[in-house]
């Protein structure tokens, strides 16, 4: 009886592993299709979508996608990276002092202030973009990178501030009080003592904000405008692909150029991305 029991346990484990393997393969099939078809001419993509014939495989289509004027790959990546860094600097830089003050001042006023900021988490960014465009126009920031950075940062501040406040509340107050008694100014206490202790939560905010900035399409498309000289990866892909969705010689290589770097970053940072996300959610 014991033996058959361990056998069913083992066969159950095998069945589970087979199921996991099959599901993983199913999740990866779309990616495989992009990769193999990025090296094939249209005719072959249509005839055998899953195969790759080494005799006719060519990097020609990738080269064409690379030089496609609609999607300037290098500058697209440069602009996107700039957005990722700039939005994070603004959102984190503005959130740290505010979160510190809110966390360290237990009055009703500051509790209401926190709620006021947190309410922004329930406002979808792309929905508020239409009226935000009129604010940016009034500030003469429409069509500019600073305008785009400010708008995207404003949508990141509620969540960033929220998780920072929760984190600072867990840091012992005695630390900054001791420093204050020693005569350190508030700014000094914040940036020299509290901020270095916030490293894990800053990393979480950075990763989540970076993902949303990297993948945002609506904000750069509407704020910079479709005719802008600045393209991000997403607006570049849209310009290159949206009118040619059945020209697979363009679609697949362009998509490959757009997904490979972020997937490589994900593979390298996978643990941080996923644990950051659950840390953010537990706080949230």
């Amino acid at each position: 009886m014991n033996r058959s029991g361990s056998r069913t346990v083992r066969s159950r484990a095998t069945a589970r592993n087979v199921a996991i393997a099959l599901l993983s393969v199913a999740m990866l099939v779309p990616l495989y299709i992009v990769v193999v078809n990025a090296f094939k001419p249209q005719q072959e993509i249509l005839l055998s979508p899953l195969g790759l014939d080494p005799a006719t495989a060519s990097t020609q289509y990738l080269q064409d996608a690379w030089t496609n004027p609609n999607f300037p790959v290098v500058s697209g990546y440069a602009v996107t990276l700039l957005l990722v860094v700039a939005c994070n600097v603004v959102a984190i830089g503005a959130s740290v002092p505010t979160a510190y003050v809110i966390a360290r001042t237990p009055t009703v006023l500051f509790r209401v202030l926190l709620l006021f900021f947190v309410a922004g988490m329930f406002i979808p960014a792309q929905i508020i973009l239409v009226p935000a465009i009129f604010v940016l126009k009034a500030l003469h920031l429409m069509g500019t990178l600073p305008g785009l950075v400010l708008f995207m940062s404003s949508t990141m501040i509620p969540f960033t501030l929220f998780i920072f406040t929760g984190y600072i509340r867990m840091l012992p107050r005695s630390l900054d009080e001791a420093a204050a008694i020693d005569g350190a100014s508030q700014q000094r206490v914040l940036w020299r003592i509290v901020f270095p202790l916030m490293k894990p939560i800053v990393a979480t905010a950075f990763i989540l904000n970076a993902l949303s900035a990297w993948n945002d399409f609506v904000s750069p498309q509407l704020i910079l405008g479709p005719g802008s000289s600045f393209r991000t990866i997403t607006t570049g892909v849209y310009a290159a692909v949206s009118s040619y969705t059945t020209n697979y010689e363009i679609v697949f290589p362009t998509l490959l150029l757009a997904v490979v770097p972020i997937l490589l970053i994900f593979v390298l940072m996978q643990r941080h991305v996923m644990s950051g996300l659950s840390a953010g959610a537990v706080k949230g």
């Binding site: 996991i20 393997a21 599901l23 993983s24 999740m27 990866l28 990616l31 993902l211 990297w214 993948n215 945002d216 399409f217 990866i233 997403t234 892909v237 849209y238 998509l255 757009a258 997904v259 972020i262 997937l263 970053i265 994900f266 593979v267 996978q270 991305v273 996923m274």
Partner: peptide, 15 residues
């Protein structure tokens, strides 16, 4: 497998 299930999330919804 967790990473494989998660990867679509790092791609832009447009893509």
């Amino acid at each position: 497998a967790r990473a494989v299930m998660f990867y679509p999330h790092v791609l832009s919804a447009l893509i």
